[in-house]
Design a binder for these strands. Sequence first.
DNA 1: TGGACACCCTGAAGTGGCTTCAGGGTCAAG
DNA 2: CTTGACCCTGAAGCCACTTCAGGGTGTCCA
Lengths: 135, 135
Amino acid sequence: MQIGQLGRALGVPVETIRYYEREGLLPRAERSTSNYRVYGEAHADRLRFIVNCRALDMTLDEVRSLLDYHDAPSKDCTRVNELLDEHIAQVATRIAELHRLEGQLQRLRKACRRGKASGHCGILRSLRQRPAAPK
Amino acid sequence: MQIGQLGRALGVPVETIRYYEREGLLPRAERSTSNYRVYGEAHADRLRFIVNCRALDMTLDEVRSLLDYHDAPSKDCTRVNELLDEHIAQVATRIAELHRLEGQLQRLRKACRRGKASGHCGILRSLRQRPAAPK
DNA sequence: TGGACACCCTGAAGTGGCTTCAGGGTCAAG
DNA sequence: CTTGACCCTGAAGCCACTTCAGGGTGTCCA
């Protein structure tokens, strides 16, 4: 299998696959006589692992850690559980932040109706103001 | 007022202020005899505008657009309203994504209890699998 | 007078996770 | 024998900063 096929199979741009190889997430692929990368099922499995992690918004460093366990099946997996817990906590935190933001934006949005002169736009006026001290 | 004071007043690192100047978001500051940047209230107002926008997670390009209206008080502000609507929609989309992610992560988390050998860890096993076709 | 220390300056490089670009080689079909 | 799809490399670009290296300035205290 060459790189384009692998990419299409897993929905990953070929540049990204090459990037993962440079970063050491994927082992260097063997090469055909014409210097094309050649992949087998093992590569596809590993790439799928990475892609799944990325779909869950993990950083490449987190993926690297998880791959270490993937590669050492006899190692205790406690750290894997912890890593996931931390990641879930991060996502929850970000959701909370974005909810707060959404509220602020909606309040800001109500400060104006379209069609005014910018000098009297309530949105722009609010953006100029000192932020209200959050109680 | 010099750059450190301005930064402390608005809670912005001095490097960020210099960066905004380089990017053209802030006008070039006048200089003291010792080549230190000198700021007045107008600068502080403009920087506060930028900081408020960034706190709402707007990109610097969005901020640039809004500053155009800030600088042209007679211009119609319809586009300001639209810009905000678009930004709110983006935030809402991201929240929805993260919620979906959170659910997936929690399901994944249940696949294992800590203390197993990685080879039998349900989390790692799930990460190796082909993603279920979303209905 | 001198030295410690906080502040300021510049330009360049690093961050993450790719993406894009420039400039080329390979290979099968028509 | 040319067209087009594919592959290769190394470097630069993206965003919004942050960090670093290497230096100047200004004030306080001894």
